[in-house]
């Protein structure tokens, strides 16, 4: 009897945990797929307006943020690689660097947003109401999609912070690291979404 209880308590289903995570990630892709489809549809209707609005975004910040997020993805992957080798301290350092890079990404995003908001370009703003219809749609989609992405970055940072606590407490360890692996998968997805948002909003219009 005791043996059965012990077995049940120690039961871990890596395959199920990861499959569940991947299914969730696909639904997350769907969440961003909708706004991007809307973007394509309106870009076809208002190519000049989308071009003009896109030109006003700061490519340098977009480029820098892409490099920052790609680097954070590297450190997230390295944190999983480290825990698999039993290096707890190194794992914690990599998680910390990942969260810090996420924070820098958000600061850049904040600066970019406040720059636009200062000029009255935000849904409901004075300058926003004066914009040609196509440009208003562009900025509407820009704020919605990058805002939604920013919320995902915050969620990822929180999940990684929780996982770091679990790692420090030994709950996530060399033999049981699926929580960290799933947290890293989430972070990589946030990165992949940005990989597509960057060319759509900053490069191709």
């Amino acid at each position: 009897m005791n043996e059965t209880v012990e077995k049940v308590a120690s039961h871990r289903d890596y395959a199920g945990a990861k499959l569940g995570m991947w299914l969730f990630l696909l639904t997350e892709l769907g969440l961003f797929f909708g706004p991007l489809l809307l973007y394509v549809m309106h870009d076809i209707r208002h190519p000049e307006a989308f071009h003009a609005a896109s030109q006003s975004l700061d490519k340098t910040i977009g480029f820098a943020n892409t490099l920052i997020l790609l680097t954070s993805s590297l450190t997230a992957a390295l944190s999983v690689a480290s825990i698999r080798r039993g290096k707890t301290e190194l794992t914690l350092i990599f998680i910390f660097v990942t969260i810090t890079l996420g924070g820098i990404f958000l600061v850049n995003k904040y600066l970019e947003w406040t720059g636009k908001i200062a000029h009255g370009i935000y849904p409901g703003g004075d300058a926003f109401a004066e914009l040609p219809p196509g440009e208003a749609v562009f900025y509407g989609l820009y704020f919605f999609t990058t805002g939604l992405h920013g919320l995902h970055v915050i969620a990822g940072m929180i999940v990684l912070a929780v996982t770091a606590t679990l790692t420090a407490g030994g709950i996530v360890n060399k033999r049981d690291f699926v929580k960290l692996e799933n947290a890293a998968l989430y972070w990589h997805l946030v990165d992949i979404i940005w990989i597509f948002l960057f060319p759509f909003f900053y490069l191709i219009s």
């Binding site: 890596y14 490099l67 790609l70 993805s73 590297l74 992957a77 690689a81 960057f198």
Partner: peptide, 28 residues
């Protein structure tokens, strides 16, 4: 243990991750 296969799974080396990262930077 069910996670035995997990530990035995092929591990990617640190260098591979670094190379992929360099490639991603270059592509950007």
């Amino acid at each position: 243990m069910s996670e035995g296969g997990e530990e035995g799974r092929e591990r990617t080396g640190y260098a591979t991750y670094a190379l992929v990262w360099l490639g991603l930077m270059g592509l950007t």
